[in-house]
């Protein structure tokens, strides 16, 4: 239970960080952390199917898509 609370707090911190970072690459990594923690939380909530989907899509593929997009535009927010 205490682990779940710590994870939720970490997730919130990462989510807020993703919103306020000016360096977009850091923001992408922060949103990746949100997805990863969400996947772990889904596992604790006995939803392994959703956890798998969240980990592979949310944490891996979406991050990759964002990073590719950043590479083709600019890294810093104006």
């Amino acid at each position: 239970m205490i682990l779940v609370v710590i994870l939720i707090v970490l997730m919130l911190v990462a989510a807020v960080a993703a919103a306020i970072f000016k360096d977009l690459l850091s923001a992408v990594i922060a949103s990746c952390i949100v997805s990863l923690i969400a996947a772990i939380l889904f596992y604790f909530l006995q939803a392994p199917d959703v956890a798998m989907a969240e980990a592979s899509i949310g944490a891996a593929l979406v991050t990759a898509v964002f990073v590719i997009a950043l590479k083709k535009s600019s890294r810093y927010e104006e």
Partner: peptide, 14 residues
């Protein structure tokens, strides 16, 4: 077992 087409497909794409 847990998982299925969507999850497997995403793993393959990765």
């Amino acid at each position: 077992t847990p998982g299925g087409g969507f999850q497997g497909g995403a793993v393959i794409a990765s």
